[in-house]
Write a protein that binds this DNA or RNA. Structure first.
Lengths: 197, 197
DNA sequence: TCAAAAAATGACCATTGGTCACTTTTAAGA
DNA sequence: TCTTAAAAGTGACCAATGGTCATTTTTTGA
């Protein structure tokens, strides 16, 4: 393949991906069709499959990119944290950033539930690359946990509260705000993970 | 319509509904097709639509029935509760019963997420009939809340934690058990809702 | 200018929720 | 017992969708 052709192919791929990001962002995963993605970028449906094997595959790629960016910011903050409270604050800043951008985390939640009945996809999604992984979370907080409550559980409870809030939020209910959940989650983590908690 | 014909129609409806309950229970909502439901009960697809207008409608009916049963048990227990701790215990017994039966609450979670992008359905689902409603929860705990933390928020946080756990559980992760979440949720409610918390 | 390779296309397939004109069954009256 | 109207049941059909692939168009380098 010539250099120029490679570039053209790359460009088409980029255009399709941007079209997909826009459409997923506004309509969610299931409601966005492959034909829409290609049309919106000015191509025919068949072109999609020259770049990815499935709609799932592209979505995972997008998520991977997005999470990578968020995580870089998060990890540099966490490195500076002195105690569990500060770690939790950094984590919740990170979670907030994933919500703020077009409610992206809710779209990812949709995809997560969609994956539950698709075994291969579900196993793939459980990898740290895509999930708010419990093992990664555990590593982040471990150094600051003062009790013998397992760090993994602190992480899983935190994720549960966050994802539960996403459902609440997705349904348009506004009984609790992001701040309420953040506060509750941090209180819970401190209760389980510090001596004074 | 004659009595006998009415009975026949009722019976068919019952057969279809039982078939649907079984299939939804094992394959979830989206992965169960209308044709499967009717075939499994020994009818043709068209028969389905003589009884309900859509797959959604039947699912909602099933949920309504199920929740009704659970709630009766729950409310009779809550009436006897003397403090917030006992109310929370009754509520979590109720939540546990919805999980124990073929993971029914996870299937309902799937349906909830499915409804998010379908406006009419989403609004319908927000009614107390179908949701672990925040207003109902608030009414249940209100008498026992000693602080000025809004009962609605205690309820919404509780639901968030429960539904977040469902996601965790649906993905096959087993970092936290139902007991872990129950314990955390009750601790959180007591922290926000009692003076000694 | 031309041929090979890559890019792009869109008709086609299977699956699905839903529709509806048609067929079969049922039951009540003659 | 026969007739007939109404109800029950059927399955071909429709549109939308994810995915396939033979074919067409474009690009490139000799």
């Amino acid at each position: 393949m010539s250099k120029k052709q490679q570039e053209k192919s790359q460009q088409t791929m980029q255009e399709l991906m941007e079209s997909a990001i826009e459409l997923f962002g506004s309509k969610g995963f299931v409601q966005t069709s492959v034909a829409e993605i290609t049309e919106h970028a000015g191509y025919a449906k068949g072109s999609f499959y020259r770049h990815w094997n499935s709609k799932d595959e592209l979505f995972l790629l997008i998520v991977e990119h997005k999470l990578k960016l968020y995580r870089e910011t998060r990890d540099s903050k966490i490195a500076k944290a002195n105690n569990l409270k500060e770690v939790m604050d950094a984590i919740w800043d990170f979670l907030e950033s994933t919500i703020n951008e077009k409610n992206w985390s809710s779209i990812f939640l949709e995809f997560t539930i969609y994956s539950v009945r698709r075994e291969t996809l579900r196993k793939l999604l459980n990898k740290s690359l895509y999930r708010l992984s419990n093992t990664i979370f555990a590593d982040l907080v471990r150094d600051h946990v003062e009790t013998d409550y397992p760090p993994e559980k602190i992480g899983a409870l935190n994720t549960a509260l966050f994802e539960g809030y996403l459902i609440h939020h997705s349904l348009g209910t506004e009984v609790i705000s992001f701040q309420d959940v953040r506060q509750a989650a941090i209180a819970l983590a401190l209760k389980n993970g510090t001596k004074q908690g």
